[in-house]
Computed example of a mutant assay.
Amino acid sequence: MRIVIAEDSFLVREGVRQVLDRQPDLEVVGVCGDLPGLLAAVDAAGPDVVVTDVRMPPTSTDEGIRAAVRLRRSHPGIGVVVLSQYAEPAYATPLLAEGSAGRAYLLKERVGEPGQLAGVVRSVAVGGSYIDPVVVEALVADAVQERRSPLAGLSRREGEVLAQIAQGKSNAAVGAALYLSERAVEKHINALFAKLGLTSEPDVNRRVKAVLLYLAAHPGAGTPGTGAAQG
């Protein structure tokens, strides 16, 4: 079984290589440290499985996930194991968006466990899948929180309008930022107020309550220049 390893940390890369090379049925046929190198190694070596870091140059953001998505379309027979130190739904969700077959998301801390990585590699090579239990817990918690959030019922545009309001912008400024007329902004605001259950009540500012709901769901957001905005 032929494997390409993509990892920008030399120590991690060599550790993964040694773990896999100890297996008599596994052969590492290429190593690289960035996304372009990974894609070139796939074309040159024709591996059965790619083991890739979630973050690599050139941007060190989500190269491993983008590689997995791209390979599903260009090389559907290649399995991909994404290694990460982050139990983040933001990475796992796009990895599995087009199906879990031949895909795995494994925390790097598992690499040192005897047989763990090798077993996952063998599984994705034949169309199986594996998601680290810690990541599964994070995915479930994220889904539960999303269902509970009153913001879940907002349309994409309503969410964008609310995000602009949370920055302290007037309706006119929101319209300028989103290329909407002020009247259109008012319609979106009234719609999101209704969806959030913010009816007209004496002494209650619906705009402020909507912003508080938004900030509760997005702790890092806020009006520019405030502590909330600076995170």
Rank of each mutant, 00 (worst) to 15 (best):
G77H: 12
T223P: 10
L196T: 05
E186C: 11
T223A: 15
K169C: 09
V174I: 14
A229S: 14
E7K: 06
V134N: 12
A92S: 08
I165H: 04
L154N: 01
S129Y: 05
V208I: 15
G225H: 08
R55Y: 08
K187F: 15
A166P: 07
V111N: 04
R157G: 02
G225P: 10
E182M: 13
A217C: 14
G119D: 03
A44C: 01
E98H: 03
G227K: 14
I78H: 01
Q145C: 13
L213Q: 12
S84V: 05
R207V: 06
V124I: 05
V12T: 11
E158F: 05
T199F: 05
V69R: 06
V121G: 06
K195M: 10
V42C: 00
A45K: 08
L107P: 09
S155E: 03
P24S: 11
A44E: 12
A138R: 14
G64R: 02
G128Q: 03
P150C: 01
K169F: 10
D43G: 07
K195I: 07
D62I: 10
V204F: 06
A92H: 09
L178T: 08
S170Q: 05
E137K: 15
R72N: 06
P58L: 10
S74T: 13
H188W: 04
S74F: 01
G231D: 12
S155R: 02
S200Y: 09
P58I: 13
V12Y: 02
G159A: 08
I5G: 00
G127F: 01
V12N: 03
L95D: 00
V136Q: 09
R2C: 07
E98A: 10
A44H: 03
A40N: 05
E88P: 09
L151W: 12
V136T: 06
A45V: 07
V208E: 15
G227A: 15
V19E: 07
G99P: 01
G77D: 13
A173V: 08
L178V: 07
A217F: 13
S170Y: 04
P36Y: 01
A173I: 06
V12I: 13
E98M: 02
R110K: 12
I165N: 03
L162Y: 01
M1F: 07
V54N: 09
L192M: 10
R13P: 00
L95P: 01
E88T: 12
A97F: 04
V135P: 08
S74H: 04
Y105R: 00
D132H: 09
T223L: 12
A176R: 15
S170A: 10
S84E: 02
V19A: 08
R55S: 11
K169N: 11
R110S: 04
K187G: 13
A184R: 11
A217W: 12
A210H: 03
A41G: 03
G153S: 14
F193H: 11
E88M: 13
L180M: 12
T226K: 09
Q145S: 15
V185G: 04
V140Y: 11
R17K: 12
Y130D: 07
D53C: 08
P150H: 02
V185H: 07
P24T: 08
E201C: 05
L151D: 11
A125D: 02
L180K: 04
L162C: 03
D132N: 12
R157D: 11
Y105S: 01
V80A: 01
G127R: 01
V31N: 00
R183H: 15
V82R: 03
Y130I: 06
R183S: 15
V54L: 13
L178D: 07
L20D: 02
A118G: 07
D53H: 10
